[in-house]
Amino acid sequence: MNPLNLLKRAENAMNTNTNLNRELDAHPTNKLLLGVFWIYAIVPLAWGVINTLVQASKLFQ
């Protein structure tokens, strides 16, 4: 391949990434939505860990 073509491809890829970053910056993350998501993820995880520990402790009684 021609080194000039590789350079142009790399430049185009960088421009695409820059455009995507600008679009993401234009729409900031909703903090409330992010908090709800984390609660949605953490509560079942915590329940599962606690339930597993309770069940494991029953094995040693």
Rank of each mutant, 00 (worst) to 15 (best):
N12E: 15
R9N: 14
V43W: 06
A46L: 11
I42C: 12
N19L: 07
A46M: 08
A56F: 03
N21Y: 05
L34N: 13
A13T: 00
Q55A: 02
E23Y: 03
P44D: 00
V43N: 07
T18Q: 13
L20E: 08
T52Q: 04
T16K: 13
N17T: 15
A26M: 03
V43P: 00
L53C: 04
V54M: 03
W38H: 09
A46W: 01
V54R: 02
R9Y: 04
N51T: 10
A10Y: 10
T29N: 12
L34H: 06
N19K: 15
N19D: 15
V36P: 00
N21D: 12
V36T: 12
N12D: 14
W38Y: 09
P28L: 03
N21C: 13
P44I: 05
I42P: 05
S57L: 10
H27Q: 14
V49Q: 01
A10D: 11
V49A: 05
A10C: 11
M14R: 15
G35I: 02
L20P: 02
A41V: 12
L33M: 15
V43R: 10
A41C: 13
N51M: 08
E23L: 11
T16V: 10
A10V: 09
K31Y: 14
E23F: 03
N30D: 13
L34F: 14
N30G: 01
N30L: 02
L20S: 07
L45N: 07
A41L: 15
F37W: 14
T29F: 14
W47Y: 13
L53E: 00
L34S: 12
N12A: 15
N15H: 12
A10I: 10
V43Y: 07
N17R: 15
L20K: 02
G35Q: 03
A13W: 00
R22K: 14
R9P: 05
I50S: 07
A13P: 05
T52N: 02
A41I: 14
P28Y: 01
V43T: 08
